[in-house]
């Protein structure tokens, strides 16, 4: 489910090229609403991706940039005309720069009811450690 690219050397021109590339699919791209929170051991990301199942979501972690791309299925009922619309047809895309060190081996991702739940465990160094204070 979760794809990740582990510490690949990014060439100098890569970020620039990425900004200038155009998408092949002619569809709108929306920013999905996201909750990000921290528990003691994990960084958790919950993202609204209506119409998306586990097969049409891509998660990429490159260096410390986490990118989520999702391609929902949009049903247009046959022989019906759209009479009223509050949401549009389009893909979802959003990137986040992660500050904390993440344990890349144990990232857990699942999609349920059109919501992506991503658990990124903190690596040892970023975990809060309790320091025992001795009397004396």
């Amino acid at each position: 489910m979760a794809e990740e690219t582990k510490s690949i050397e990014i060439k100098k021109e890569t970020p620039l090229a990425e900004e200038k590339t155009e998408r092949i699919r002619e569809r709108r791209v929306y920013l999905p609403r996201t909750d990000i929170y921290e528990t003691r051991d994990d960084l958790v990301l919950v993202m609204d991706l209506p119409g998306v199942d586990e097969k049409n979501v891509d998660i990429m972690l490159e260096k410390n940039v986490l990118t989520i791309k999702a391609y929902p299925t949009f049903e247009r009922p046959e022989n019906y005309t759209l009479a009223y619309a509050e949401y549009g047809e389009g893909d979802f895309e959003r990137s986040f720069a992660l500050s904390d060190e993440i344990d890349r081996e144990h990232i857990e991702a699942r999609v349920k009811n059109g919501t992506l739940y991503l658990r990124l465990p903190k690596a040892g160094a970023a975990k809060p450690t309790k320091i025992a204070v001795k009397a004396g």
Binding site: R33, T34, D35, I36, Y37, E38, T39, V44
Partner: peptide, 15 residues
Amino acid sequence: PEDPKDDIRYHRRER
């Protein structure tokens, strides 16, 4: 909510 716990600290809350 996904995690109905108390000890969570929000960085972003859009949902």
